[in-house]
Structures are given as C-alpha cells and as structure tokens.
Design a protein around this nucleic acid. Structure first.
Lengths: 133, 133
DNA sequence: CCGTATCCAAAAGGATACTG
DNA sequence: CAGTATCCTTTTGGATACGG
C-alpha cells in the first residue's frame, strides 16, 4: 500500500482545482448572477431605486433572510447601492450602481438566447424522455 | 384568528411564484449554465469531442456521480450528444450539438464582462470590508 | 471502460421570533 | 420600517462499492 492513497491524491487534486476556480472571474460572475434571488433583485432594480419593503413585495415569496443576504452581497460587490434616510421610521433605498447597470445588457442577451432556444430544448427533452420508455 | 393564516398565504404565494419561475426560460438557462460542472463540461467540449474518461481527467476532481449526472442533463436538453461504440471495452464519445455550440458565444460574452470588471468588483469588496472595521 | 446505487456529511434556505 | 438571530428542513454533492 502506498503512503499516499489514491483517494488522498484525488482529494488533494480537487482542493487545488477548487482553489483555482474560486479565483476565476467568470466562475465568480456566474455564481453571482445565476443565483435566483440575485437575478430577481437586479431585475426589480432595473427600472429604478426601490425600498426594502417594495422589493419584498415585488419579489413574491422571498424570505427576509434571503433578501437581506442578497442585497448585502450585491452591495459588497459594488453592484447595488444602499441609501439610508434617517427618519422615524427609517427608510432605506436600494439602486443599481453604474457597475450593476453595466450588467443589464448581459442579462438581456442571456434572456434572448433562452427565449429563442427554449422550444428546441423542450423538443430535445420530450424526445429524450420518450426514448427512455 | 383567520381561517387562513398569514403564514399560509405567504407559503401559497411562494409556491405560485416558484411554479412561475420554474417555467421561465431565462431562469432555466441560468440554472443550467451556472452549474459549476456544466460550464466545465461545455468548455471541455468546445474544442471537440471527448470520451468519458478524458472528461474525468480534464475536469480534475469531478466525481463520477456528478460527471454522469451533468452529461445526462446536457444530453436531455439537447446540448450534448452521446455516441456509443460497441466494442470491448465499450467506448463513449460526447460532443456539443449545434444547439450546444450556439451557446458558446454567450459563454464568451459572460467571460468578457467578468474579466473586464473583476477588478472593479474586487475594489468594491475591499472598500466594503474596510468600512466594516 | 462506463457507468449505477447507496449512504452520509455539508451547505443552502425557509419559518419564526425578536430588536433598534 | 428594516433588519438580525436561531432553529430546522431540504437539497446538494462527495465517497464508496458494485454492475453491464
């Protein structure tokens, strides 16, 4: 038996690869925009600033935990800005930054590919599922 | 107390929204391409067909379970084709379909946005984290 | 060689209650 | 109004062993 097992080698290989991927900008962007709540928040803000309570209403069914978490990461990444108005009760407005806005054309091209190819994908699924019978 | 509680109303609202989103082509596409293994497989196949064992080697650290699962969904969606050569031992080649190939320019534009804005995102993160101290 | 089946640990995310 | 904190369920995915 080797001093380093095959399982250990594979685990090490995986860790190194994971570390490499974690630094990959494309991977990071995909992880961001593909998040369900992220894309919904960006879309909701596309037409202008929104208050926290507005977002919660627009994005039906989002939990406070996920909305807050999503807004925090978007703010941290510089895609969304947070403006607090000190009053009673307090008011908080969220808006897309220029960086966040620059992402909209990309979202649009994704949307266009999806809409123009969804039928082909669905035909492929039906064909695949039929063959399985 | 109401016969329908607020919690029940919210749960119902969420279910309806989830069902709506599940049918959204854009959401479906994002769910696909944002999957870590999916994007790695598509990239690996961009230069030509690959055998199962080649993919497992190229995509370091992928488990057989995830590779198989990923290839199956890609095949079902019509993005990847699977060609079995009956011999001993059996040989299986995977390749992008025309539909899968049509996705490559989109992947490229995502890659380009990410690479040209990653520095700005990282500056935003640093600034955000500094302010938290 | 190309998978499938099972088990199990880790992570994501929703419900709820509470605070400034 | 705008969150935070906690608990707990569901989902994801890796490891391993086995089958065609």
């Amino acid at each position: 038996m080797a001093t380093v097992t095959a399982a250990q080698r594979r685990a090490e290989q995986r860790r190194a690869y994971d570390a490499y991927l974690a630094e990959c900008p494309t991977r990071q962007l995909l992880d961001r925009i593909s998040d369900k709540w992220v894309s919904l928040v960006l879309t909701a803000l596309a037409t202008g600033p929104r208050r926290y309570s507005e977002l919660r209403r627009i994005i039906a069914g989002v939990s406070e935990k996920m909305l807050t978490q999503t807004l925090r990461t978007l703010e941290r990444d510089g895609l969304v800005s947070r403006a607090v108005t000190v009053s009673v009760p307090v008011r908080v407005d969220y808006a897309l930054t220029p960086l966040g806005t620059s992402l909209l054309p990309l979202m649009t091209s994704i949307k266009e590919w999806a809409e123009s190819h969804i039928e082909e994908v669905e035909r492929a699924r039906t064909a695949y599922d039929t063959d399985q019978d």
